[in-house]
Design a protein around this nucleic acid. Structure first.
Length: 341
DNA sequence: ATCAAAACCCGCCAAT
DNA sequence: TGATTGGCGGGTTTTG
């Protein structure tokens, strides 16, 4: 599993080093995303390890950002070779070409086992380095057609927030970089810590980002209506039961009409919708972790009719359950060419 | 893929 | 008088 792989790898050294590329004309926001997620100390999380964040430039020194302030890079590109994760923010010119030196250092980082991560049009830089050849990738939707034209060997997917190939990850327009960085935290430290980081940043731990995004549940909203909070707790604790509106209403001492009304007010979704989502989330988790068959999983999440389970699953996640499991497991292999660690 | 039955959702409105 | 409740109708969705 890649999660274990990354964990072991990080534990084998003093810390997991995240190196971000900076250059003149940098978007400060994109750099700040990486700095916020990886650069802030977070002792309150009690994670077994955390990241060391640094910025690296082709020519270290003072650099102009697109905002009205400068950044000073103290490191050169040689730091990429030994980094565990390399972040490449949006490039200043989508028609331009990165320098040979940058291309070489990105290739070296990747060959050396680093995860290489692009935000927004950073995908152009990765593509120019040949790191995306034969792979799917994403970038800002405005530039997706250009990326596909310029680099025909890259399969450009414009309708997702990010694409994870294990050692190569690309994200869509600027803010999707947040989704991707949280995704990395989730891969490294698990859902719980990723959710807590997201909560600290006051963003959704997960946005549904298009069909095959395979995302986890978002930070649960705070429910101020106690009856509805009870109802949700009851749903979670009794997923395998039928859970009709009427039964649920009786359980929390409300009329069905009232439950329906207050549930929508408190959560933004109807009881039925919510219950279905809980069931499918649980089903997805069982597909990822356990080895139960689809029939058994369907029963356990309260959709005992397997064809119904498949129908809903496919509609929500874009792929049938069996293929989801296959894809998920396949995606969990360590990246080829990684160094031992 | 199709279909009848069941369940759900929600605007409406009289009763509280 | 204004807010909340809960039954009803029936269009929509889900089920098996």
């Amino acid at each position: 599993m890649i999660v274990m792989f990354r964990y072991d790898r990080a534990m084998s050294r003093s810390a997991h080093r995240v190196a971000a590329l900076v250059f003149d004309g940098l978007s400060p926001f994109e750099l700040a995303i990486a700095a916020e997620v990886f650069g802030l100390p977070r002792p309150e999380l009690e994670a077994p390890w955390w990241y060391e964040f640094e910025v690296c430039a082709e020519r270290p020194g003072r650099l102009q950002t697109l905002g009205s302030f400068d950044v000073v890079a103290t490191n050169g590109l040689d730091r990429f070779a030994s980094a565990d994760t390399v972040i490449v923010p949006g490039c200043p010119d989508v028609h331009g070409q990165p320098s040979d030196e940058l291309v070489a250092s990105l290739r070296e980082a990747h060959a050396g086992g680093a995860r290489v991560v692009s935000i927004c049009t950073g995908a152009f830089t990765l593509a120019a380095a040949g790191l995306l050849d034969g792979k799917s990738a994403t970038t800002h939707w405005r530039h997706a057609p250009l990326l596909a034209r310029r680099y025909p060997r890259v399969t450009v997917t414009a309708d997702v927030l990010y694409v994870d190939h294990g050692s190569i990850l690309t994200s869509a327009g600027t803010a999707a970089g947040i989704d991707l960085c949280l995704h990395l935290i989730r891969a490294d430290h698990g859902e719980e810590i990723a959710n807590r980081v997201a909560r600290r940043m006051v963003v959704a731990a997960h946005r549904e980002g298009g069909q095959a995004q395979f995302v986890e549940r978002a930070v649960p909203p705070t429910i101020s209506d106690p009856a509805i909070a009870d109802a949700i707790a009851h749903i979670r604790g009794n997923l395998r039961e039928p859970l009709t509106l009427r039964a649920l209403a009786a359980c929390v001492h409300l009329s069905p009409r009232q439950l329906s009304r207050r549930f929508s007010a408190a959560t933004g979704s109807s009881p039925g919708e919510w219950i279905l989502r809980e069931r499918l989330d649980a089903g997805r988790a069982l597909l990822e972790r356990g080895s139960d068959g689809i029939d058994e999983i369907a029963r356990r999440v309260g959709l005992p009719n397997t064809s119904g389970f498949r129908r809903h699953f496919r509609k929500r996640y874009g792929v049938p359950p069996a293929r989801y499991r296959q894809t998920y497991r396949a995606g969990a292999r360590p990246p080829a060419g990684s160094r031992a660690g």
